[in-house]
């Protein structure tokens, strides 16, 4: 099988969409991490995989089906979770395995199926199509705009559900909104890093940022910075050494995390509080 490295012509496309995707993943991922829902992105991606397989099976371009399947199953499960008081990590496990299970069955049912069809969804691919880049930019822009206007409410419900509710914030609605945005984010990002590696973009930059940041604003800014640097250098590495793009991005993100741990552990950087006291 062939893991795609970035080719010269596709570098601008890859970089532009990569930057948009990283910004999106780091912000959406931050809320998931803070909700102790780090693997939720993974769960969404796996159920989206079920959707991709379904799309291939019925012969419709799979990405939008994947999006619908991921969001609907996540919303459904979070309703169930509320009603029966099931823990978040169990929900993640259910979503993840059911999505994958359904996907595998559908793949095995699909006639004249070629692994290549599904490979790009599993491991990501180089984004070459201009139309695709435009869609990614538009969706990322839309979600970031919505987040800009609602982040306070989402943050408050994340911080304390009880207090947020008692001050009149529609906590459930905010949580559905977050799930929906996470679903769209996952489906967009699948193209870049694939189902299997999506958690890396959601989690690594945020955990690295949280090692230093003192405030929420610092966390967001640092995380975005880490995510964008990982993606950009990953794409360039992929082109330079002709190795798989998704793997490069994830490894750079992991290297940033390890670097942050070392820097913090050795006392090189105390906290970002010194940098921006009133961020």
């Amino acid at each position: 099988m062939t893991f795609e490295a970035v080719s010269y012509e596709s570098i601008p496309h890859a970089l532009i969409s990569g930057i948009a995707i990283s910004l999106l993943c780091s912000v959406v991922g931050l809320f998931l991490v803070l909700r102790k829902f780090s693997l939720f992105g993974d769960a969404l991606a796996h159920s989206a995989f079920g959707g991709v397989a379904f799309g291939l099976f019925i012969g419709i371009y799979p990405l939008w089906i994947a999006c619908a399947v991921a969001i609907l199953s996540a919303l459904g499960l979070s309703k169930i979770r509320q009603k029966f008081d099931i823990s978040g990590d169990a929900i993640v496990a259910i979503l993840l395995s059911t999505g994958l299970g359904a996907g595998v069955i559908l793949v095995s049912l699909t006639e004249d199926f070629e692994f290549h069809d599904i490979e790009e969804f599993l491991f990501g691919s180089a984004i070459v199509d201009t139309q695709n880049v435009v869609t990614i930019l538009a969706l990322a822009g839309a979600i970031l705009t919505i987040l800009f206007f609602t982040y306070k409410k989402i943050l408050y419900s994340t911080f304390s559900e009880e207090q947020a509710k008692a001050s009149g914030i529609p906590v459930e609605k905010m949580s559905y909104l977050l799930i929906t945005m996470a679903g769209v984010t996952v489906v967009i990002s699948m193209q870049l890093v694939g189902v299997l590696l999506i958690s890396a973009l959601f989690v690594l930059p945020n955990v690295s940022a949280m090692l230093y940041a003192r405030s929420f604003k610092q966390t967001v800014i640092l995380s975005m910075l880490f995510a964008v640097s990982a993606t950009v250098s990953g794409i360039i590495m992929s082109y330079q050494f002709e190795i798989a793009q998704a793997g490069c991005i994830v490894l750079v993100a992991a290297a940033i995390f390890v670097g942050s741990l070392v820097a913090k552990g050795s006392g090189l950087v105390k906290t970002a509080g010194i940098l921006a006291k009133r961020a």
Partner: peptide
């Protein structure tokens, strides 16, 4: 209405300053 709950749970790692916590509401 302002409410102070009995046991506010604070996640030790929550990245927000006191000022940010107050402006959330």
């Amino acid at each position: 209405v302002g409410f102070v709950p009995q046991k506010p749970v604070v996640d030790r790692n929550f990245p927000a300053t006191i000022r940010e916590v107050l402006s959330m509401s």
